[in-house]
Design a protein around this nucleic acid. Structure first.
Lengths: 194, 194
DNA sequence: CGACACATGTAACACGTTACATGATTTG
DNA sequence: CAAATCATGTAACGTGTTACATGTGTCG
């Protein structure tokens, strides 16, 4: 739902049209996050259908301007302060790769871990280099680059922790299969009321 | 593409059927990552269509067993060592919230930052508690919880860095709009050949 | 038998990507 | 005028979610 609300946010500054929205979105992230133009148009259609924006049916030009509604402004204000749903954290692709490597015959987990670690260190160096020539007026780019650097650092540290864990228990002991449903166990473990 | 390959990985241990795959996937993550059963079936159909798995058309029971093919094993081995595409890093929802807060009239960015920070600290405490009663045989759960803890820590540190950045430059100066295409600027900045 | 758990499947939708099609406006 | 650019749109597909439908097997 990120793009949907991001467009809503840009429209809260004033009426805008499709291509302009894409341009401003990308400019705001220092062009690090490209935005598909087709998605902009379909998202705007859904926003209009849901009453969060309105469009000028202006015939004087090719541009179709959208403007945010009061409902849209309420929705936006709520979204900005609503934390993501924690009951089901996003599946991380790299974590899945390491997890399933434990069960794939003929694959050394620690090899997989090291391969990805090398790549991540390289990526981090690239972003560090990129960070150096970010000028003071590019706040958006600076924030995005910072976020990516913190994220990459965390992933590398996780890989190191995982490697340590795996070094300690060399053999691939498959985990026993439990019989509970997922949300149940998570709720119980995190100490949340039923 | 995570689920697709995760199922492939589980099938590399031996032939299995739908519900069993879901159960083993969830058990492997300590039930922290629930897996939709409908998605399991549709993904298996696509895997079969693409020649990565084959199914027994066995009529003796209700279970439909799938088995990995040689092509599937190759695809799996490649996937395990292939790093995610770095040319377009994933859009982070929280980062977007902070970025667009800069441009939404009537919203104090630092309020938004602090609201999310409070929530993240709470979440981290819950995962820390959860980590304490993870037993030694639950490797998958331990790895998933570690990953989430490292990730949350990184996000909190990013919020702090962002808050510092925003404190220094109080006024909301909108970034000027550049005229380049996204992948171009990223490639140039990261020093990659055209 | 009837209730329940097991097992498979499908329909509808949201979101995202790629590719293609179609006008309108500018400019050489 | 022709070509390039601006601007909007649609089609097809992959992935993911929710909800519903349908069989099968077991057990009181």
């Amino acid at each position: 739902m990120s793009v949907r609300h991001a467009l809503l946010a840009l429209l809260s500054e004033g009426p805008k049209y499709g291509l302009q929205l894409r341009q401003e979105f990308e400019a705001g992230t220092g062009e690090v996050w490209p935005l598909n133009i087709g998605q902009v148009y379909t998202t705007l259609q859904r926003l209009e259908r849901d009453g969060l924006v309105e469009s000028d049916a202006r015939d004087d030009g090719p541009q179709k301007r959208y403007r945010i509604t009061a409902v849209g402004e309420g929705e936006l204000a709520t979204w900005l302060r609503t934390p993501p749903d924690a009951s089901a954290p996003p599946r991380d692709e790299l974590v899945i790769k390491v997890l399933v490597s434990l069960r794939v015959p003929g694959v050394d987990v620690r090899d997989v871990v090291q391969a990805h670690r090398r790549h991540l260190v390289e990526l981090m160096q690239q972003y560090t280099r990129l960070k150096e020539d970010v000028t003071d007026d590019e706040v958006g780019l600076a924030l995005v680059v910072d976020a990516e650097l913190f994220r990459l650092d965390a992933v590398i540290r996780w890989l190191d922790a995982a490697d340590g864990r795996l070094k300690r228990r060399g053999s691939n002991a498959p985990a026993p299969v439990g019989g509970q449903t997922a949300p149940e166990r998570l709720r119980r473990r995190m100490g949340v009321s039923p």
